[in-house]
Structure formats: C-alpha cells, structure tokens
Design a protein around this nucleic acid. Structure first.
Length: 419
RNA sequence: CGGGGCGUAGUAUACCGGUAGUACGCUUGGUUUGGGACCAAGUAGACCGAGUUCGAUUCUCGGCGCCCCGACCA
C-alpha cells in the first residue's frame, strides 16, 4: 500500500486523555481511534494487525479440531434465565436494551448460554462427541471503569472456544491440548518468553482455572512466578495449600504484575445441566456433557504486544503480527529518477508476495524515519540517491535499526531468510 | 460505585471578570531534502445549561464527558 493513499496520519503528541502506553502509541501511529471511554475503532493499520493476530489464533484452534462459527451478538433473555444469569446480580456487566415491539434483549457479554442451547439440537449421542466450537465475536461488557487503553474495554472481540466432551478424561485431554495451542499462539505473536500459565481461581464455575499472564507493569493482576517451572500462581489463590498441591515453595516465587492475555477453564456440567444438553451413551443412558471454555481477546493481545515490545521510538511488531512485512521508504529529494527506482522496488516486492507499506510521500527523510519507527514494521528498506549509487537498497530491522546495503537481486532471499 | 483530577482550534498547551495567544497539523507560494527543515501569508477554538455581574472562556451551581487510585471483573 502506498502511504500517500493511507488516510491516517501519525501524530507527535498523544491525546492527553490517554495515559496507557498501548493506546498512546496505537493512536499516534494511526492504528486505532477512540470513540469513547472503553470503545475503540480499528483503522487500516490496526485492522491489519488485528486480522493477523486473529488468523494465528484461528490456525491454532483449527489445528486442535476447532470448528469456527459466529453466534449472534443480540441475546434472548430466555436462555439466560434458564441458567440464572439474566439477572444483573449474576452478571453485573450486562448491556440490556428494549425491543420496540416489547420485551428485552441483551448484548452478549459472553456466549456459553446460546451455544449450549444451540448444541443441544445437534448433540444427542456419544457418537456426536467430542465437539469443539469457536468464534471471534464481539462481547459487550458494561464495565464500571474502562481503563488501560485497549486492554480493558466495553466492546471487544473475543475468541471463545467451548469444548463438549463425554467424560472428564476426554475433557482433560482436550484442555491440555488447548493449553499447548495457547502457548504456540503467544509464542507466535511474540510474547511467549514472558507469558506464564498461571494457576487461578475458577470463579463461580469450578475450583480452579488457568490463566495466561504476560508480565507487564501496566497489568492489573499480581502473580507469583516460578521461573524454572515456567508457571505462576495468581495472587487470588496464593495460599499455602495451593502451593503445596503444586509442589512449589514460596521462596522460589517472584511477585510480578501481569496482564491476562488468555484463559482456559472447566465448566463441568454447569451449563449442560441447566440447558438440558445431554447425550445417550452406549447403553442408552442419558449423560451430561462436560464442557470447557477457552478465551483470548485479539485486541487485548495486540495491546499487550505493544506494551511488551515497544521502545522509545515507537511500536516494535514481531513479524507475524506486523501490519506489513516491509516498510519501503523512498528518499527522493524531489529527484524523479529516484522515485521511479523506488516505484520499481515497490512493484518487485509486491510481485513476490511481500506485503509492503510504501512511504512514497513527499516528505523529508527525518519525518519518514520517525514515522517508520513509530509504526514499527519489522523490516525497513530505503531507496535513496546513496543506495542507488551503491547499487542496492538499505535494509534495517526495527529491532536494532542498523542498516546494511543489499543488492536488489538479493532482497527477496534476505526477506525470506528473516521469516 | 467511593475518592481525586481535568474539560480552550484536528492535536498539545497559555493567559485572562473586558471576548483568546503559542506550537504542531492543514492550505498557498518560495527556499530546502538521510533522522520530525526554514521564510511568508492563510485556516481553525472556550463541553452543555442555569445563576452572579454592566460584562463570564474565567466565579457559583447543575448536567454531560474524560483520566487516575480503589472496589469490581468467566
């Protein structure tokens, strides 16, 4: 894409109402736009990154047998009444609205109820199990206080997968598979080294759950990390008996602040019981379906990546989630020949399937470099009088900024080598 | 929801009980051209309502919005 055509623009100053690093940088670089407290729109660059993250999650969910669907955002109270969760006392973040023809609707804060009800139409035999169903769908949560930029918002997309199993053993097997898949996801988006599977409270559904916590000072949670075992314990369950169960000592743990980037938890038969989701076993006996729930918010993950990897100059995207593979920057000084050469490089990159943002704007080098650093695309290629005279283009990585001259014919090979 | 803070051009800010200044941006012209250039001329603003006052962007009250701390958070 030609940057001269991109309708967004970078800014030197972040809006004064944004304090969090992720929102400051994402707004300054033109990835997102704030609509109101806790509500953000995604702009071209931001949407590209969002989609990259979504695709990574999709691939890993498909790899463990997930089947993608989309449930509705509007919710019928009836199904929530069956689980006693229509009441604001049960879910205090409900957005509810009225139907003009009379009656109420809810905006989905989560999707256990509608999916369990839906699945009861399709699951009736042990032969129908297990089933793993997921979606990327907007959740609405009427948080008392939105905060931390795009990390705690009132409207956000969540990947939520629900597992339907015949037995506790079958459920556990998948639960661990999903845990592995989550580890791959966090590794691919570039935060694997600072993300810990964290033992946590199970809330109202089960005794315990597992959270994926990324170390981050801007995080809301406090966890105790066991560096050697690569696990952690959430402060909410940081108790002697829990530590004993896990076989770890207090002295081996380090207190850290962290942001929850994913969670997996057992639902047991809480929803299948109340919504009548059961199956007939080999003996024709009715059995409850064992469920589990597995969530990741791509938007929050995007914010977390920014928080974790940004430097003083701006965002630093890992390869797999960057909006483009390459930022091609021309420094023409008004020289049409240089512009033509940069255009040729742009076309050559595209012909080779490289996603490239081409800064073809009539701007000075300093401004272009500053913007390039802010936007954070992993590889920068510069075409200028200097590089043409030297017979190539300059290639630099966002992570270290050091430029080296690369012959035009070697560019594609070098780019693939970095993939 | 408790506590604190803040609402001035697109963005960041300043001053002031007598109708608003600066920087960035944007427009036009010129000079520049490898780390956010320079000159000139333009463009654009007081959250809403009520009150006090000769006069309110400024003071008071109410509303709305935003931020932070806490509480809450499958």
């Amino acid at each position: 894409m030609r940057q001269s055509q991109l309708f967004t623009r970078t800014r030197k100053d972040a809006p004064k109402d944004e304090v969090s690093l992720n929102a400051q940088l994402l707004i300054r670089a033109g990835f997102i736009h704030k609509e109101m407290a806790g509500v953000y729109s995604f702009l071209p660059l931001g949407l590209r990154t969002f989609k990259k993250i979504e695709q990574i999650i999709r691939e890993e969910m498909n790899a463990i047998g997930g089947q993608e669907i989309t449930l509705s955002a509007l919710q019928d109270p009836k199904v929530w009444e069956k689980t006693n969760r229509w009441d604001d006392a049960a879910i205090d973040v409900w957005f509810k609205t009225a139907l003009k023809s009379g009656g109420e609707l809810g905006l989905a804060p989560t999707h256990e109820e509608p999916l369990t009800a839906l699945m009861s139409e399709y699951i009736s035999s042990y032969k129908d199990l297990p089933a793993y169903v997921y979606q990327f769908q907007t959740k609405f949560r009427n948080e008392l206080r939105a905060k931390s930029g795009i990390m705690r918002v009132r409207e956000f997309v969540m990947k939520d997968l629900y597992s339907f199993s015949k037995s506790e053993a079958e459920f556990r097997d998948f639960y661990e598979k999903c845990a592995k898949a989550y580890e791959k996801i966090f590794k691919r988006v570039g935060i694997g080294d600072r993300t810990y599977r964290t033992f946590a409270s199970g809330g109202s559904f089960s005794k315990f759950s597992d959270e994926y916590q990324m170390l981050c000072d801007a995080g809301e949670d406090v966890i105790y990390v066991h560096e050697k075992k690569r696990i952690a314990v959430n402060k909410e369950v940081y108790k002697d008996d829990v530590l004993k169960d896990l076989g770890i000592e207090k002295s081996e743990l380090k207190e850290e602040k962290a942001i929850e980037v994913g969670n997996i938890f057992p639902l047991g038969t809480r929803f299948s019981d109340s919504l009548g989701l059961k199956y007939k076993d080999e003996d024709g006996k009715d059995m409850p379906v064992i469920m589990g729930s597995y969530g990741i918010g791509p938007g929050r993950l995007m914010g977390a990546v920014v928080e974790a990897l940004a430097d003083k100059k701006g965002i630093v995207w890992p390869k797999e989630v960057a909006p483009f593979d390459v930022h091609l920057v021309s420094i023409t000084g008004g020289n049409v020949e240089i512009e033509k050469e940069a255009d040729r490089t742009y076309e050559m990159l595209q012909e080779n399937g490289i996603e490239v943002l081409y800064d073809d704007r009539d701007a000075r080098a300093g401004e272009k470099f500053a913007d390039s650093d802010l936007i954070g695309i992993p590889v920068r290629l510069v075409v200028s009088e200097k590089t043409i005279e030297a017979g190539g283009v300059e290639m630099a990585l966002r992570t270290n900024g050091k430029g080296t001259l690369v012959a035009e014919s070697d560019i594609i090979d070098k780019l693939h080598a970095k993939k």
